[in-house]
Simulated assay, not measured.
Amino acid sequence: MANEKNLPLPSALILDEQSNLTLAELCRACSVRAEFIVELVDEGVLAPQGREPHRWRFSGAHLYRTRVALHLQRDLGINLAGAALALQLLEEVDELRARLRIMGGE
């Protein structure tokens, strides 16, 4: 998970794929309201574990996706549906690049 200039991680918060954040912790880490996270879940940007919001658990990848979606929305004016599509396309590009590296022996 790359740490982009516009999406810094708080120094006290280092997460990996196995991290387990609550809704409140994710909101604090991203400085957003719970309603924004609920919208991301409704739009399919995030797929937390757990059925109800008070039981949701998020990984480090969810934190990254939330920050990218927030950046796309706030700084670029992209709506949440567009952010969901952009995230999907960015992940596909990363996957294709990884496959090319493997095929190229790099």
Rank of each mutant, 00 (worst) to 15 (best):
L40P: 00
P53A: 00
E35D: 14
Q88N: 13
L85Y: 06
R33K: 13
R74N: 12
E35A: 14
A84K: 10
I37D: 00
G44Q: 03
K5I: 12
L96W: 12
M1R: 08
L89C: 09
A24M: 12
L89K: 10
E91H: 11
A98N: 08
E39A: 09
M103S: 13
E39N: 09
V68N: 06
L23G: 01
S11R: 07
V45M: 05
V32M: 10
C27M: 01
V38L: 08
R33N: 08
L7E: 14
R101M: 10
A24C: 04
H62P: 00
R65T: 05
G77H: 08
A69P: 03
E25I: 06
V93W: 11
A83V: 13
A24L: 14
R99H: 11
L13P: 05
V38S: 06
A47K: 08
N20W: 07
A24S: 15
C27W: 02
R55Q: 15
L13E: 05
L96A: 12
E17W: 00
K5S: 13
T66F: 01
G60N: 04
A84R: 15
A2D: 09
M1E: 05
Y64A: 13
L40Y: 01
A86R: 01
L13Q: 00
E95Y: 11
H71V: 04
D16S: 08
A12I: 09
C30S: 13
W56H: 08
D94F: 11
V38H: 08
R99L: 13
K5H: 09
A61M: 05
S19C: 07
A83Y: 00
V68H: 15
N20C: 15
A84F: 03
